[in-house]
Design a binder for these strands. Structure first.
Lengths: 146, 146
DNA sequence: CGCGTTGTTTTTAGCGATTCAAAACAACCA
DNA sequence: TGGTTGTTTTGAATCGCTAAAAACAACGCG
């Protein structure tokens, strides 16, 4: 057991038909603390509690949990893949062009207007992804200082 | 001179304050023929006319032209960066989850509704990017054959 | 409660896409 | 035409991630 909050984590893993292991619990716990973390960030977080864990294990866990639907993987242009536990709702992201920080955005103005392109060109569309790019509050002020 | 259509290409490069060179003309010409090509595809196209060109030169040209605003770079999750000459209008993309084919999509239903998130969380948003994921016509039929 | 099966993690390599740095080179202005 | 400055070549390195095989541990069954 890794912490008192590990119990609900265990059942979600088990519920997905996966074996419950320390690395998996630790990865979920890490993403609870730091949403939108990349593999390396998760890795350093996990290492604190499970020093023997390898980076490859983290990659494996992230892939397994993503395939199982427990995690959502986002791949912003220009940075490494990030993962989040918030799944199932279709929310979008606000990403800082300077520092890469990711913020969740509850769906856009006027409901889900972006879910259908004007002309699908014969594609069977199954997902619409919206990403807003801009400067986060922190980078706005540090840019002003220049 | 690389072809009769090289003239307008030259002036667009010059107009951006860049020196006009054969590799640059060839890259623009290649993207005229194959929109949404990646660096490697552009490279093999360019090599036909300019056999001495290096892949790194292509990367350099793509970066320079993108920085100059003559090219737009798109980085779909799971595939290498692609480039297109169509810039300035805000159009979006339809990408095949199977083969990675990219299609342009003129803005979504009801004008530009996606340009403003409900809550910007203090970000100074400057761009909204919409990507539709689905199966292209070709991949739909080949999937049915399985 | 322990054992075996099956799924996980470790270890060790490897690969593709892209970037970096220095030297050779060419476009363009005066 | 000559310099200056920006480009391309050449050669190598980096980053993020995937692959493969062997060691290992979770979980269901007896």
């Amino acid at each position: 057991m890794i912490s008192p909050s590990a119990e609900p984590l265990s059942s979600s893993i088990r519920g997905a038909g996966l074996k419950v292991t320390e690395p998996r619990l630790a990865v979920l716990a890490a993403l609870e603390m730091q949403p939108h973390a990349d593999a390396d960030t998760v890795f350093s977080q996990v290492k604190r509690h499970l020093p023997g864990t390898s980076l490859q294990a983290v990659y494996g866990v992230l892939a397994a949990l993503t395939a199982a639907g427990l995690l959502r993987k986002i791949e912003p242009a220009g940075s490494s893949a990030r993962y989040e536990r918030r799944i199932g709702d279709n929310h979008h992201h606000l990403i800082c062009t300077d520092c890469g920080t990711v913020q969740d955005v509850d769906c856009v103005t006027g409901e889900a207007p972006c879910l259908t392109p004007a002309d699908t060109a014969g594609f069977a569309v199954h997902t619409a992804e919206v990403t807003f790019w801009g400067l986060c509050p922190t980078c706005q002020t540090s840019n002003n200082q220049r």
